[in-house]
């Protein structure tokens, strides 16, 4: 394994070349798909962002959460409440979706971070279910039958459907670029190295002076903020949401997990590849009904068995390529 020796220089975080790659990749990704279909582009950018966020959690911070749908759902309903209920301008309301995720994660992490490993994973899921059930029995949020967005809120992003679609892509692309850039910035800072150290051995990391709880918790809260923003955007695009759809473990965690595993966990390149593969599979097989999910599951199992590093991991292993280097080399 002499991968490290093939990586171009990445001496410190002031080295701007490291940020150009991921930003360009995200912009090109968005631009190319936009030519095919604007809705598809927004969808793909949303999944790319969710996958980058989940990859940061599990692949770098070692926090395997299967409850990220909690923050999507809370983003959806916080957005609904402040925009439709309180009449807050649409874009400000989107930001409130992020704040809802941030607040929920700040409070929830106090309890969830007492759990380790598999228990942590189950804990996050349980919290997400509690959120879903709480929303289901709250009439102000539409209860179990769901809520529709008033026309005025949606029209703020464009008078016609086409104009709105452009707005959605613009927002999704902005979120994707900012998310990817923030992750690169984080990973190239001293906290990035600390995250990988904690993931590999929390005990040794603590003994070297790292406050592992604080760092992991900050990442968890930051990811929840971005996930909440995404939730608000999803509602804007779908116009109607039920608690089951907003807090869907399949849509907002299982598919995202699939993308990260397929593309390559613990690598910035992984989610890009995973998202493309996922949407191609969806385009070809979604018409087959339940068989589609069986195919997705089979692909995931095969990748985990024969290429646990994911598609990008395989490519790196064979070629030594590293598109977005975050490694620090000896000066």
């Amino acid at each position: 394994m002499s991968i490290a020796t093939n990586i171009p220089h990445a001496r410190n975080s002031a080295d701007w070349s490291g940020f150009v790659g991921p930003t360009l990749a995200t912009l090109i990704f968005g631009a190319v798909v936009s030519f095919i279909d604007l809705r598809l582009a927004a969808d793909m950018l949303i999944y790319l962002t969710l996958a980058q966020l989940w990859n940061l959690l599990s692949g770098y911070a070692g926090l395997v959460s299967v409850g990220q749908q909690a923050f999507v759902g809370l983003g959806v309903y916080a957005f609904y409440y402040v925009s439709a209920g309180l009449g807050v301008p649409t874009l400000v309301a989107v930001a409130c979706g992020g704040v809802a995720g941030l607040l929920a994660a700040s409070i929830g992490s106090v309890f969830i971070f007492r759990l380790k490993g598999a228990y942590f994973a189950i804990g996050t899921w349980v919290v997400a279910e509690i959120c879903r059930l709480t929303v289901s029995i709250t009439p102000q949020l539409g209860g179990g039958s769901g809520a529709s967005l008033p026309v005025s809120v949606v029209k703020a992003l464009g008078a016609t459907r086409d104009m709105r679609d452009i707005s959605f892509v613009a927002i999704a692309l902005t979120l994707a670029v900012v998310t990817v850039l923030s992750i690169v910035l984080l990973l190239r800072s001293r906290y990035g190295i600390a995250l990988i150290a904690i993931r590999d051995s929390e005990r040794a990391a603590e003994a070297l002076g790292i406050d592992s709880l604080k760092i992991k918790r900050s990442v968890y809260i930051g990811v929840a903020f971005a996930t909440g923003l995404i939730g608000a955007l999803i509602f804007l695009m779908k116009l109607r949401m039920t608690p089951d759809a907003a807090f869907s473990v399949l849509d907002w965690t299982a598919y995202v997990l699939f993308i990260v595993v397929i593309g390559g966990s613990g690598r910035l390149e992984g989610p890009f590849i995973g998202t493309i593969v996922f949407f191609m599979l969806r385009a070809f097989f979604a018409g087959f009904g339940p068989i589609y999910l069986v195919i997705l599951g089979a692909v995931a199992v095969l990748v985990m068995l024969f290429a646990p590093e994911g598609i990008w991991g395989q490519i790196t292993k064979r070629t030594g390529w590293e598109l977005f280097p975050i490694r620090r080399r000896r000066p």
Partner: peptide, 11 residues
């Protein structure tokens, strides 16, 4: 208990 995902220098 090395940090296996980091280089020696980064460790």
């Amino acid at each position: 208990l090395p940090f296996t995902g980091l280089s020696v220098f980064e460790n």
